[in-house]
Nucleic acid binder design. Structure first.
Length: 774
DNA sequence: GCAAGGTC
C-alpha cells in the first residue's frame, strides 16, 4: 500500500485536519523531536487504497543567516552585508531537529500533500518541507504527480474535505517573494544595526548603547511613538471660552445645555454672548427630534483586533482573553443595539443651545458585551416647539486646549496594521523597542519614547526620513508582491532593492555626524561621566567606571576603554595590582548568593597568555605564580562541566565558596573559617589541591582544641563532614574504581592543562553534583 | 550581539 505524507504548519492543525479527514479513526504518536505528532489512518488517494501520515512542522523550518565568518562584528565592514557577504539557510530551531524529523517520517512515502497556512509564509514553508523530504521519498513512476498543495481557509469539515478533493500545486513565486523579503530584512537590518551600534558604542557614558538596532518594522514602530511625542512637545495650549446654560424643567430638576457654537477663542466675544443671554428669563424650544439609531454589533474578531482589545481593557490573563473571544463571537451573531436619540434645541436670547439623550429600545449584542452598552441617561422632558422653560443660569467657563497624550499600545497597533506590519509579529516589534530602551511603557499602556529613541528618530529625519517612515515597508512589500504574482523577476527585484538600500546606507554613514550632533545634546561624552574606580597601569591615574551598558572603565588620559563583565557589580579589589601590567584589579560579583572573581581590566581585554581568551578573569588566568591566578587558587576539575575548574573564591569568607570558572556551579563550604588557602600539596587519591583551613577558635568544628586542618575537599573525612560530603565519598568518581580511575585536576605534576576535557569523566555528572553540594 | 517571520 502506498503512503501519503501530509504536513501542516503547526501540531494542533495537523491533529484537527487528521481528525476531520479520518472521521475520527486515527492512531497518533509523538515524533522524534517531541514537539510534532504523527496521525495515521487509511483511506483512498488517486483511486487507490493508501496509508495517510498527517504531521506538521512548527512554523518555518529554516532561517536565513550570514556565513559564520561574516558574523564577526569587528572583522566585517557592515557595507559588505549588502552584497558580498554570502547567506545560508540554517535550521530555524536546531532543538526541534525538524529536517531529520521530516526525513524520518517522509522516507519511503509516495505522495506529499502540503497543508501549510494559505499565505505567502506558508507557501515558502511548503518548499522548505519539500527540500527536506523529496530526497528521501520514493521516486515517481512515469512522470506521475507526487507533490500536492491543499488550499483551505477554515478548519471546518466542508472546507478541509473540499481542499482535499481539489488539490493543487505549491506556488513557487509566492515562496520566492518570501525568500527575497528574508534576504532584504537580514542584509538591511544587520548592516544598519551593526554600523550605528559600533559608531555610538563607547562614545557616551550615559547611553545604553549595547545594541542600537534598526529594522524595517521596528524603526517605523518607534517612529510612530516619537511622532506623537513631537506633537506633545510642540503643542501650545490655547485658552477658550464656553457658555453653559441650565434650564429648570420641573420644581427640582434642571437640564444642562451645550452651546451650539461649542467654543470661542476670544474672551470679549464670549463675554458679549454671555451679556446677550444672561438677562433672558426664558428658554424657548426651537425644535425637537427623535431618531431611532443602531449601535452595530462587532465584526468577526481577528488577531489584530484581539491584540488591541487585550492591550486596552484586559490583562495578560488567559482566561479573561478566552472569555473575551467567546463573548465577542456571540456578539457577532447577536442583533445590533437599538436606541432612541432625542434632541431638544433651545433658544436663549439670540443663542442656540442643545441637549440630547439616549433611551435603549433593545440592547442586542450589548447584553453579552455590557461594557459596550448605551449608558443610562435621565430621560428628556416631553415638549414641543414653542414651549418655554425658565432659565436657571447662564455662565461663561474658561478652558484650555490640552495636548494629546502619548500613544496607547492600542493606537500603535492600529497604526502598525494600517501600514501593513504583519499582524502576528506586532507584539514582537513593540517588545523590541521596549527592550532596546527606545520607549518605556507608562501607565495605561502608553508608550513614551526615551531620549535615545527620540534622538534616533530625529536623526533619521535629518539624514534620510525614509528610513523611519512606515512607507519603507509598504514600498518594499509592493515590489515583493510583483514577485509573488509572477510579474517581476526575483533576482532583479532583490538586486535593485539592495542597491537602493546600499546607497541609502552609504549616505547614512557619510551623514552620521548629523545624528551625532543630536546625541551630544542628550548624552554626555565618555570623559565627562562615570566615577573614578581603579588605576590605569600605564599612567597610574584613576580610570572612570561607566555603569551604563556596556559597562566599562575609561582612562581619559590614555583615551582607552576597557570593557568589563556585564550583569553584575564591579568594585575595587583591595587596591591589588596585576603583576603583569600594574593595573588595579577589580572584583566582579553576580550578587551575594552568586559568584565573584577578581579581574585585571587590561588582561580582560588583552589576554596575556596564548591559552587565554578575551573576557577571562583571574580565575581563568594561567599565570604560574600570581596569587590571584587559576594556578594558585584552582582546586580540581568541575563536577558538572567539561572544561571548568573549581576555584577558591578568595573574597567569599567567612562563608567560603568554591566556584567553577566556566559554568555556574558554586559550592559553599567551611563556615566560620577565618582563613582558607589552597596548598601546593595535592591529594594522593584524586590529585585535587589540598585546602589549608584555619577555623575560628570558638567555633572550630575540629576535634579537641584544633583550629587548623589541611586535606582534600573531596576525599578528606574531616572536610567531607563540613561540606556535607558524607555520602559523596561513594559517589565521587575518585572512589568508584580505585586508583586506576584517578581524575580531577589538582595542582600537582599530573595536572592537565586547563581547558582540556577529561577523557574519563563520570557518566552521570548531575547525580555526582547533587551528592556533593545540594 | 543584528532583521522579520513562522510557532513551542
Amino acid at each position: 500500500m502506498k503512503t501519503v505524507l501530509m504536513v501542516a504548519e503547526k501540531p494542533s492543525l495537523a491533529q484537527s485536519i487528521a481528525k476531520i479527514l479520518s472521521r475520527g479513526s486515527l492512531s497518533s504518536h509523538k515524533g522524534l523531536n517531541g514537539a510534532c505528532s504523527v496521525h495515521e489512518y487509511t483511506g483512498t488517494f488517486a483511486g487507490q487504497p493508501v496509508r495517510f501520515k498527517m504531521t506538521s512542522v512548527c512554523g518555518h523550518v529554516m532561517t536565513l543567516d550570514f556565513l559564520g565568518k561574516y558574523n564577526k562584528w569587528d572583522k566585517v565592514d557592515p557595507a559588505e552585508l549588502f552584497s558580498q557577504a554570502p547567506t545560508e539557510k540554517k535550521e530555524a530551531n536546531p532543538k526541534l531537529n525538524m529536517v531529520k524529523f521530516l526525513q524520518v517520517e517522509g522516507r519511503g512515502c509516495d505522495y506529499i500533500v502540503l497543508w501549510l497556512d494559505c499565505d505567502k509564509e506558508g507557501e515558502n514553508i511548503c518548499f522548505e518541507v519539500l527540500d527536506a523530504v523529496l530526497p528521501v521519498m520514493n521516486k515517481a513512476h512515469g512522470g506521475e504527480k507526487t507533490v500536492f498543495r491543499a488550499r483551505f481557509s477554515s478548519i471546518t469539515d466542508t472546507d478541509i474535505c473540499n481542499a482535499m478533493a481539489r488539490l493543487g500545486e505549491p506556488d513557487h513565486n509566492e515562496a520566492l517573494s518570501v525568500d527575497a523579503r528574508q534576504e532584504l530584512d537580514l542584509r538591511i537590518g544587520c548592516a544598519f544595526t551593526r554600523f550605528q551600534t559600533k559608531y555610538f558604542q563607547g562614545k557616551y557614558g550615559d547611553l545604553d548603547s549595547s545594541l542600537i538596532s534598526f529594522g524595517p518594522c521596528q524603526t517605523p514602530t518607534l517612529g510612530f511613538c516619537v511622532e506623537r511625542h513631537d506633537k506633545i512637545q510642540s503643542f501650545k495650549p490655547e485658552t477658550y471660552w464656553v457658555l453653559q446654560a441650565k434650564v429648570n424643567t420641573d420644581k427640582d430638576r434642571s437640564l444642562l445645555l451645550d452651546w451650539d457654537r461649542v467654543r470661542v477663542f476670544d474672551r470679549e466675544i464670549a463675554q458679549m454672548f454671555l451679556n446677550m443671554t444672561k438677562l433672558e428669563k426664558e428658554a424657548q424650544v426651537e425644535a425637537t427630534s427623535r431618531k431611532e439609531k443602531a449601535k452595530q454589533r462587532p465584526l468577526a474578531l481577528n488577531t489584530v483586533e484581539m491584540l488591541r482589545v487585550a492591550s486596552s481593557s484586559l490583562g495578560g490573563d488567559a482566561w479573561r482573553l478566552y472569555e473575551y473571544i467567546t463573548r465577542h463571537f456571540i456578539a457577532t451573531v447577536s442583533h445590533d443595539c437599538k436606541y432612541l436619540q432625542s434632541t431638544i434645541s433651545f433658544r436663549i436670547g439670540p443663542e442656540l443651545f442643545t441637549c440630547s439623550g439616549k433611551t435603549v429600545l433593545s440592547p442586542g449584542f450589548t447584553e453579552i458585551m455590557p461594557w459596550q452598552s448605551v449608558p443610562l441617561e435621565e430621560s428628556l422632558p416631553t415638549c414641543q416647539r414653542g414651549d418655554t422653560f425658565p432659565v436657571g443660569e447662564v455662565k461663561m467657563l474658561e478652558k484650555q486646549t490640552s495636548p494629546p497624550d502619548y500613544l496607547t499600545e492600542a493606537e500603535l497597533i492600529t497604526l502598525m496594521e494600517k501600514h501593513g506590519i504583519a499582524d502576528a509579529s506586532i507584539p514582537v516589534h513593540i517588545n523590541n523597542i521596549c527592550q532596546r530602551n527606545y520607549v518605556t511603557v507608562e501607565s495605561g499602556r502608553r508608550l513614551k519614547p526615551t531620549n535615545l529613541g527620540i534622538v534616533l528618530v530625529h536623526g533619521y529625519y535629518k539624514i534620510d526620513a525614509e528610513l523611519v517612515l512606515p512607507t519603507i515597508r509598504s514600498a518594499v512589500e509592493k515590489q515583493l508582491n510583483l514577485i509573488a504574482q509572477g510579474k517581476a523577476d526575483y533576482r532583479q527585484v532583490l538586486g535593485h532593492t539592495l542597491d537602493v538600500f546600499k546607497r541609502k546606507f552609504h549616505y547614512f554613514v557619510d551623514s552620521i555626524a548629523g545624528m551625532d550632533e543630536l546625541m551630544e545634546v542628550s548624552f554626555s561624552p565618555l570623559a565627562a561621566t562615570g566615577k573614578p574606580l581603579s588605576r590605569c597601569g600605564k599612567c597610574h591615574r584613576f580610570m572612570k567606571y561607566i555603569q551604563a551598558k556596556p559597562s566599562r572603565l575609561h582612562c581619559s588620559h590614555c583615551d582607552e576603554t576597557y570593557t568589563l563583565p556585564q550583569n553584575g557589580t564591579i568594585k575595587l579589589y583591595k587596591e591589588l595590582r596585576c603583576p603583569l601590567d600594574d593595573f588595579e584589579l577589580v572584583l566582579w560579583s553576580s550578587g551575594s548568593r552568586g559568584k565573584s572573581y577578581p579581574l585585571c581590566p587590561y588582561c580582560y581585554n588583552h589576554p596575556p597568555f596564548r591559552d587565554m581568551k578575551k573576557g577571562m578573569g583571574c580565575n581563568e588566568c594561567t599565570h604560574p605564580s600570581c596569587q590571584h591566578s587559576l594556578s594558585m587558587l584552582g582546586i580540581g576539575q568541575c563536577v558538572e562541566c567539561e572544561s571548568g575548574v573549581l576555584v577558591l573564591d578568595p573574597t567569599s569568607g567567612p562563608k567560603w565558596k568554591v566556584a567553577c570558572n566556566k559554568c555556574s556551579v558554586v559550592a559553599h563550604c567551611f563556615e566560620n573559617a577565618h582563613r582558607v588557602r589552597v596548598s601546593a600539596d595535592t591529594c594522593s587519591v584524586c590529585e585535587a589541591a589540598l585546602l589549608d583551613v584555619d577555623f575560628n577558635k570558638a567555633k572550630s568544628p575540629l576535634p579537641g582544641d584544633e583550629t587548623q586542618h589541611m586535606g582534600c575537599v573531596f576525599c578528606d573525612p574531616v572536610f567531607q563532614e563540613l561540606v556535607e560530603l558524607k555520602h559523596a565519598a561513594s559517589c565521587h568518581p575518585m572512589h568508584r574504581g580505585g586508583p586506576g580511575r584517578r581524575q580531577g585536576r589538582g595542582r600537582g605534576r599530573a595536572r592537565r592543562p586547563p581547558g582540556k576535557p577529561n577523557p574519563r569523566r563520570p557518566k552521570d555528572k548531575m547525580s555526582a553534583l547533587a551528592a556533593y553540594f545540594v
